[in-house]
């Protein structure tokens, strides 16, 4: 595939090209609390962000969505699916998030295909950007999902000083840059990319040993760490879990959702909706007649961690990509990587 470079000050040219065909979304604030929002001018774009609150998952598997509407006519219900086919482009996705999307792609297509996810996904162009400044919570290098990307993108940008290196990853990507006056990338550009990414990798301070991790997690269902996290004082400087669900809601690979109907006041029409759910919430494990399969907090936090370690039903498709969002967002300062150390037999401080 082809490669180009573009002066940072000329990025508006590329953005204008994107805006011709797509609604463009990108990080709108610097720092770790950025959000992916609609971008209409280059001034709104902050490609130097370190992380966002919600991952780009929200574009394909949104927090809330309508599956179909229904209406009662002559004693029979008719349904009308609400399929989104808006074309969008997400600009500035980090490698970890691209990997998360690849996992969700697999998850939502195996066995049964999820129409809603697939539809949104196929109408989306991903313009990724390699990380040159990690957030303090990232451990992507341990998970093999960053800090640089070699798959899953339509276009890949890398900050190489005053310029971006622009690498094309798909036909859609190639088509998008045709007609834009970009220079061919030089050998020096690639050397600079190499240099910066090596430097970046050294800046990552968090690690998680993933060797045999799913198996170790499965074999430690009764480890005391779960009780510590759920009810006692927490682990390694953390507080006990609040069961607030934040970790799973900001996780780029968490997929669980709830389905419910709403009827409008006419009582003859309404919608079936789905909403992101979290295994940390008490209601998640409820079944008929008030029974609950994960009533204890320790069971809920254990279930989530197992899922992220690749030891739950989602398998690799729902396991961690090392983006660090759950660590940043946890009011109790619970750190997945520390828990992994403890179940591996490490000492608690």
């Amino acid at each position: 595939m082809n490669s180009y470079n573009i002066e940072k000050k000329d990025m508006n040219i590329l953005l204008d090209r994107f805006l011709e065909d797509y609604k463009v979304f990108g990080p709108t604030r610097p720092g770790a609390d950025s959000t992916f929002d609609e971008i209409t001018s280059i001034k709104q774009l902050h490609l130097d962000y370190t992380s966002t609150v919600l991952p780009p998952k929200k574009f394909f598997h949104p927090p809330k969505e309508t599956l179909f509407s229904f209406e009662l006519k002559n004693d029979k219900f008719t349904t009308k699916e609400s399929i989104q086919d808006k074309k969008i482009l997400i600009l500035g996705i980090h490698p970890c998030d691209v990997h998360a999307i690849l996992k969700l792609d697999k998850f939502f297509s195996t066995d049964f295909s999820d129409t809603y996810y697939q539809n949104r996904r196929k109408n989306t162009v991903l313009v990724a950007i390699n990380c040159v400044e990690p957030s303090e919570h990232s451990f992507c290098s341990s998970m093999g999902t960053g800090p640089y990307l070699d798959e899953g993108y339509d276009i890949l940008l890398t900050d190489i000083g005053t310029k971006y290196l622009v690498e094309i990853g798909s036909k859609t990507g190639q088509k998008l840059v045709e007609g834009v006056n970009l220079r061919k990338a030089t050998e020096t550009d690639f050397h600079e990319k190499e240099r910066r990414l090596k430097l970046m990798e050294k800046k990552i301070k968090k690690f998680m040993n993933t060797t045999w991790l799913p198996r170790i997690a499965r074999e430690n269902l009764d480890h005391e760490v779960w009780l510590d996290l759920g009810e006692h004082g927490g682990v390694d400087g953390s507080f006990p879990c609040l069961s607030c669900g934040s970790c799973s809601l900001v996780c780029p690979t968490c997929y669980c959702y709830d389905v419910y109907d709403t009827m409008d006041l006419s009582l003859i029409s309404g919608t079936r909706n789905r909403e992101l759910d979290s295994c940390q919430l008490l209601e998640y494990g409820e079944v008929a007649l008030g029974d609950n399969f994960r009533r204890d907090r320790k069971d809920r936090i254990r279930h989530w961690m197992l899922c992220k370690f690749g030891a739950a039903a989602g398998g690799k498709n729902s396991s961690c990509v090392g983006c660090g969002r759950c660590i940043r967002v946890c009011p109790s300062k619970i750190d997945l990587t520390e828990v992994a150390k403890v179940i591996r037999g490490g000492k608690q401080r």
């Binding site: 069961s243 607030c244 669900g245 934040s246 809601l249 919430l281 008490l282 209601e283």
Partner: peptide, 12 residues
Amino acid sequence: QHPVCVECKFRD
């Protein structure tokens, strides 16, 4: 009956 955090996250 879930916490406000859920709705807060929904709003990014």
